[in-house]
């Protein structure tokens, strides 16, 4: 946990680090770790880097069998221009963003309630409900889509963003509930009792006292749900057929279907479709990871 202090310790911490490094130097195993890490990072990043790189080149440059890497002077934004002008990609992105953020918020709130119930209460049926929640994961989605469509149709939720939010929250709930349960377990119960003594109700205790301490849980559940909602394809395709309500994944699938191995265009679309999650992660990363560290301080 000294790491945590140095991380958040600002300039002093950084100065201290510099001292430490100078004093210790690098051992052989340190160098080994650095080399291994570098190798792993290159290996993992490569498919992604190649995707981004090739999205900026015309197809003939990429398909040239005599050339491994495209020439920098042939770089162009034409793929992106074609993509954004020729389709409703911008609309899809907005829809996906609304649906994903909505699902993220709702999932955090609802899974907090259930996770808290599992963590703090011993009640009749607890085991059964916990197993049942896990069990719904066991059904392959594809086969359930027909009755779900009929149901959403009854409720007037077709071609709405709300319909997708409901579906995604439900999909995220089993895992999110278990995660929140795990994170609440790391929060000392004494905190709850103190809050009760101060006159907080159950909801007050949960949202004002316990949740703020369980940041890593919120970040993990939130990001997980966002990614799930951003990537989901089956429900989005079946429930929302109106052009103004389609999501990125549906647009992407159509695009892939149309351009299959026009790799330049496909890669440009891929980059655009990955961007929001990358941005979200870049923003939330500090919180997520430092939150994880805080979660570790418990007890």
């Amino acid at each position: 946990m000294t790491d945590l202090q140095t991380r958040s310790g600002g300039p002093q911490g950084r100065a201290a680090l510099r001292v430490v490094r100078r004093r210790r130097g690098l051992t052989a195993s340190d160098v080994g770790v650095l080399v291994l890490t570098a190798f792993v990072c290159v290996a993992i990043a490569f498919p992604f880097v190649w995707m981004v790189l090739t999205s900026f080149f015309p197809t003939d440059e990429l398909f040239d069998p005599t050339r491994l890497f495209p020439r920098p002077e042939r770089a162009t934004l034409a793929n992106y221009a074609l993509l954004l002008s020729g389709s409703n990609f911008a609309t899809y992105m907005v829809n996906s963003a609304i649906v994903s953020v909505g699902s993220m918020l709702a999932s955090v709130v609802i899974s907090s309630l259930s996770g808290y119930a599992f963590s703090r209460y011993r009640f009749r049926g607890r085991q059964v409900v916990m197993v049942a929640i896990l069990a719904v994961q066991l059904f392959p989605f594809v086969i359930l889509i027909t009755p779900m469509y009929a149901f959403f149709s009854e409720l007037g939720l077709l071609n709405t963003r709300l319909g997708l939010v409901i579906a995604y929250v439900a999909i995220s709930l089993p895992f999110a509930s278990y995660l929140m349960l795990g994170f609440f377990e790391t929060v000392p119960r004494s905190l709850d009792e103190a809050a009760r003594v101060d006159g907080c109700g159950v909801i007050g205790t949960l949202f004002r006292v316990v949740l703020p301490v369980a940041w890593p849980g919120i970040a993990t559940v939130g990001i997980n749900t966002f990614i799930l909602a951003w990537e989901e394809y089956l429900f989005a395709k079946v429930l929302n057929t109106d052009e103004s309500m389609k999501t990125v994944q549906v647009g992407l699938a159509n695009f892939f279907g149309e351009f299959t191995t026009r790799w330049d265009l496909v890669m440009a679309a891929s980059v655009l479709a990955s961007l929001p999650t990358i941005i979200l992660f870049a923003v939330a990363q500090r919180r997520l990871v430092s939150g994880l560290a805080v979660g570790g301080v418990k007890e």
């Binding site: 009929a150 149709s153 009854e154 395709k237 079946v238 057929t241 109106d242 052009e243 279907g257 149309e258």
Partner: peptide, 22 residues
């Protein structure tokens, strides 16, 4: 004009809708 491109199962999608009155 509505486009449901790339959806190889457009007929099944349509039957889901028509069976639900939409």
């Amino acid at each position: 004009l509505e486009t449901l491109a790339g959806a190889s199962d457009y007929a099944q999608q349509f039957s889901r809708e028509a069976n639900s009155g939409s």
